[in-house]
């Protein structure tokens, strides 16, 4: 059980995180919000890269500061831009990280082998990281985060830069390991987490504006998501009047998906809201 109490951090006059309080059990939690909402600040404090101005973080009732290196052994972190050592091979890198984490050598070798298979890098494990594509480095960063079977796993944009096949594989793998861990995923790609997250936390300018299961959140806008077909020349006018979240050219005309608490046009039909719709309901002022 992982608890964050009233965590705050300012950078000069900018209050980046404001009394963030949340309680995490096992499972996947999605941290959603635009750039600058405080996601990275929160994650940097959870990983102890930053000191909070106020507030506490507790693991199973103990302040993480008091746990010392035990906390770092129970924590796995995948940063958004993994800085890696280009001359290391994937295998060497994971062995190095395992050493830093104080893992038993034999167990580490088994785990490393398993993880390399899971992230589909086993075939290239002896190749230099410098020769890896961005997506490969990403997958290696995920493997590193899972070394030592950590209880708390923090993933910052884990699927950015991956092609659809890899994204699905990574998503499935994360879902499979999350059963007995607390996994916190910060992402923009809401569709990636919609079906695997038990709860989503909407972070708006450093404050939790809402949270709940994807189902609970989407229920809040039930009846406010519509689909209608218009002529191409009508699209701009619709955008000026309503929050249009999708435009697609179809057989009969241009299909628009609209967020609106009133029925936009005569022939609009209500559609089932997605978590993405809910995100845009909260953060889509620009649309």
């Amino acid at each position: 059980m992982f608890t964050i109490k009233s965590l705050s951090k300012s950078y000069g006059s900018n209050l980046a995180l404001n009394k963030f309080t949340y309680h995490f059990d096992h499972g996947i939690y999605a941290l959603l919000g635009p750039n600058g909402s405080g996601k990275s600040t929160l994650m940097n404090m959870v990983t102890q890269n930053l000191k909070p101005d106020e507030g506490e973080i507790l693991l199973d009732g103990t302040l993480i500061g008091k746990l010392g290196h035990t906390y770092r052994e129970k924590l796995g972190f995948m940063p958004q831009y993994p800085g890696m050592y280009p001359s290391f091979s994937a295998l060497d890198f994971l062995r190095y990280m395992a050493t830093l984490k104080g893992l038993n050598k034999k167990k580490a070798e088994e785990q490393i082998d398993e993880l390399l298979h899971a992230v589909e890098l086993h075939d290239v494990r002896t190749h230099r990281i410098g020769s890896f594509s961005g997506g490969m480095k990403q997958r290696l960063a995920l493997a590193q985060a899972l070394l030592g079977d950590p209880e708390i796993v923090i993933l910052d944009e884990p699927t950015a830069g991956l092609d659809p096949k890899q994204r699905i594989a990574i998503r499935n793998y994360i879902a499979s390991v999350a059963l007995n861990k607390t996994v916190i995923i910060a992402t923009h790609v809401v569709s990636d987490v919609e079906f695997i997250a038990r709860e989503a936390i909407m972070l708006k300018k450093g404050v939790i504006s809402d949270s709940g299961s994807p189902y609970e959140l989407t229920q809040k806008i039930d009846g406010q998501v519509w689909q209608t077909v218009v002529k191409p020349e009508e699209v701009q006018a619709m955008q000026d009047k309503f929050r249009v979240v999708n435009i697609q050219n179809g057989e009969q005309g241009v299909i628009l998906r609209i967020l609106s608490d009133v029925k936009p046009t005569e022939d609009s039909i209500p559609v089932v809201p997605s978590l993405e719709d809910y995100y845009l309901h909260v953060f889509g002022d620009i649309l």
């Binding site: 919000g33 979240v245 999708n246 435009i247 050219n249 845009l280 889509g284 620009i286 649309l287």
Partner: peptide
């Protein structure tokens, strides 16, 4: 981020 992405996709779609 998602809102910016939707705005960009809307423009591209048009």
């Amino acid at each position: 981020d998602l809102a910016e992405r939707i705005a960009a996709l809307n423009l591209i779609a048009k």
